[in-house]
């Protein structure tokens, strides 16, 4: 299973801060499509995905136990 984290405004789309998805062996691009299917309002064009605390490529393959974070545009400082 992959653990998903939703931050900031994305929580208002999902209604939850985290959930599990059965996506081990699939790519980050597949994960992105899965999220769009679950949450059609998710603004994926402006969301970056981090896997295990590092920004990921859409071709990266997910391993069982990975933590995927959906990162909306950051606004620190």
């Amino acid at each position: 299973m992959i653990k998903l984290y939703y931050f900031a405004g994305l929580r208002e789309v999902t209604g939850t801060t985290e959930e599990l998805a059965d996506l081990a062996g699939q790519t980050v691009g597949d994960l992105s499509n899965w999220i769009t299917d679950q949450y059609p309002d998710m603004p994926m064009q402006s969301v970056r995905i981090a896997i295990n605390k590092e920004y990921a490529l859409s071709t990266d393959v997910l391993q069982d136990g990975d933590v995927a974070a959906l990162i909306p545009p950051v606004s620190g400082g």
């Binding site: 931050f7 900031a8 405004g9 402006s46 909306p72 606004s75 620190g76 400082g77």
Partner: peptide
């Protein structure tokens, strides 16, 4: 990955989102 939410008298917004 840090996000700022502004709270105004008449609402809120996540900056950048």
């Amino acid at each position: 990955p840090i996000w700022k939410q502004e709270i105004w008298e008449d609402g809120t917004q996540w900056v950048g989102y």
